[in-house]
Nucleic acid binder design. Structure first.
Length: 550
RNA sequence: UGGGGUGUCGCCAAGCGGUAAGGCACGGGAUUUUGAUUCCCGCAUUCGUAGGUUCAAAUCCUGCCACCCCAGCCA
């Protein structure tokens, strides 16, 4: 199932809770949730959270909810919720329920009134700037708001008026009454409701006050009966508030427990929604699904198999250390998946003509579709004795250990014959223009005839008569020097991030369905794109390992 | 300088008092009609650091050092 095994410390907490008998009243059912805010597309960083949560669900035979954490109407939209649902489906995950925090607005409001009634919340008239100014600093306590001790009646009246739309944005907020001198800034009377005369994509104009994350999230978890609320490290400081909110709301035991883990970082991969959105908005990429994007649609569009992403997360594991995984590890997972699933095809990205001078006519040869899947299946490849080979497969002056072709040398044309290079036509500029060879009929691929002729290497080729013109596009990753570049990042990210080569490819690959992936031998894994003016087009998913050029 | 976290191989990461898993990367070898794959083999006497407790410590205690997070009416 490709689920992370290393959920170790998370499992430890869950096991503790289970052992304590905390969940006996609920049949010991473990319930988790994946709570994205629908304000952007899911990216590879989210896959980690998804994998961890689904691993827990699987391990404990529990339940998992997908919950849209949509409490900020200014940023959210259906476009995003749909994309999130599709991305999760693409990864092959099946959640038990789809919920929306916005469906809890009534309940949330009710709890807010309870807070007021219990003296745990108050309406504050301070401006945002004033609240910031009175919050104190890391080392100094904050000052209590002059509105902190309003009566329950007044608070209730004011809060209801806020809801009724009597006040403009920013005029008032509802604050939790906790401790202005807490060393944890999150406990210094955090705002839990703000006024925003902004229509909500699902609730329309029903509300003009919206709950804040710190209030809505714990309550949502509790309402759904979540037992373990897994989130990233930056919420550690919020945990006391998380617990406070649930306790004061009066939820019955067992209440959810928040557990934090380190989020995923990958070298050379930008993982901040904010920057990704900027790349899209400013047109540096074609969209959220641009193949250079680390979004799931981007990765999908590039041709990355979903299971490669899952395996990657499983390999990387879960911990609380801040870490940056080398992208080589991701690439390896992608190759690993494609190695057994992608058919092989021959292509040359820098063609040089090779003529077999003693060959006449044409024939069909058997070409193994995928030597690693154990099927042994072959397909036919036409050969006319006149082919293109890659420039890098021939050397005027072969370097040591060179296994490919050079004058006087022997090499096997993959799936065909061993040939010997007799002559080379070199242009005035020193470039090889054509290679002339002799072939040996008894060395035909698959032949049982014994032959003393041996070749050290095998090279690929595309027949001159049948080969198809092709464009090979490669995407370099969106490079960053640091994780969150301050400026010029978009220019740098975009610079040279696409490169194109033109060459020849077998008609088999050229005529394959769009989206099919091939391993272009000794080059990389490529995805078939729709052809344009008679030219086949393939785009790189990930390059192959190359021990020679290293 | 307050609080909350984290420090184990180049990069992730197990380990929870009994003498350092695994993956990626790297190096070497074997097989190979992809210099791919596969397959072997190697790769931390050492766990941020300094002390202490113990027959025994990466694991317990103490001090120190480094890095990350927190002062949104974002999530």
């Amino acid at each position: 199932m490709n689920l992370p095994e290393a959920t170790n410390f998370i499992e430890q907490f869950i096991n503790e809770d289970l052992a304590s008998g905390k969940y006996e009243s609920r049949g010991n059912e473990i319930c988790v949730r994946f709570p994205p805010e629908p304000n952007g597309y899911l990216h590879i960083g989210h896959v980690k959270a998804l994998c961890i949560n689904f691993a827990v669900k699987e391990k404990y035979d529990g339940k998992i909810n997908l919950r849209m954490d949509d409490t900020n109407p200014a940023k959210e939209d259906y476009e995003y919720v749909n994309s999130i649902i599709e991305a999760i489906k693409w990864l092959g995950f099946e959640y038990d329920n789809l919920f929306f925090a916005s469906d809890y607005y009534d309940k949330l409001y009710e709890i807010a009134e309870k807070y007021i009634a219990d003296g745990n919340a108050y309406v504050c008239d301070l401006s945002a700037e004033e609240i910031t100014a009175t919050r104190g600093t890391l080392t100094e306590a904050g000052k209590e708001s002059p509105y902190r001790n309003r009566s329950v009646e007044e608070n209730l009246k004011l809060f209801r008026e806020m809801r009724a739309g009597k006040y403009p944005d920013g005029a008032k907020v509802l604050r939790a009454k906790i401790d202005m001198s807490s060393p944890n800034l999150n406990m210094r009377d955090p705002v839990i409701y703000r006024i925003a005369h902004v229509p909500h994509y699902r609730q329309g104009d029903k509300w003009c006050i919206y709950p804040m994350y710190d209030f809505a999230h714990p309550v949502s978890d509790a309402l759904e009966g979540i037992t373990h609320s897994l989130c990233s490290l930056e919420f550690e400081n919020h945990r006391p508030l998380y617990d406070w909110v649930i306790e004061k709301a009066g939820f019955a035991q067992p209440v959810p427990r928040q557990i934090e883990f380190a989020r995923l970082n990958i070298t050379n991969m930008l993982m901040s929604k904010r920057y990704l959105k900027k790349l899209v908005d400013e047109g540096f990429v074609s969209g959220w699904d641009d193949p250079r994007m680390p979004t799931l649609v981007g990765l999908k569009n590039r041709g990355v198999p979903p299971m490669a992403l899952r395996k990657f997360c499983a390999d990387v594991g879960v911990a609380k250390n801040y870490g940056v995984v080398n992208i080589a590890q991701l690439d390896e997972c992608i190759r690993d998946e494609l190695n057994v699933s992608a058919e092989r095809a021959m292509a040359v990205t820098d063609p040089v003509k090779l003529t077999v001078t003693n060959y006449e006519g044409e024939e069909e040869l058997d070409f193994e579709i995928n030597p690693t899947d154990g099927s042994g299946k072959t397909r036919a490849v036409k050969f006319t004795g006149s082919v293109f080979i890659d420039r890098s497969d021939f050397a005027l002056e072969p370097p040591p250990k060179f296994k490919r072709l050079f004058k006087g040398g022997y090499v096997r044309l993959k799936a065909a014959y061993i040939v010997r290079c007799d002559d080379v036509k070199v242009g005035a500029d020193g470039r090889v223009e054509e290679i002339f060879c002799t072939y040996f009929p008894e060395t035909r691929s698959g032949s049982t005839v014994k032959s003393d002729i041996k070749a050290k290497g095998v090279i690929q080729w595309v027949d001159c008569k049948y080969g198809v013109d092709a464009e090979f596009k490669s995407f370099k990753p969106l490079l960053t020097d640091e994780l969150y570049p301050d400026q010029d990042y978009a220019e740098r990210l975009n610079k040279d991030s696409v490169s194109v080569a033109y060459g020849k490819v077998e008609p088999y690959a050229a005529n394959s369905a769009e989206g099919k992936s091939f391993q272009l031998m000794r080059t990389g894994y490529y995805k078939v794109c729709p052809p344009e003016n008679g030219m086949a087009r393939l785009s790189e998913i990930v390059s192959l390992k190359d021990n020679f050029n290293k």
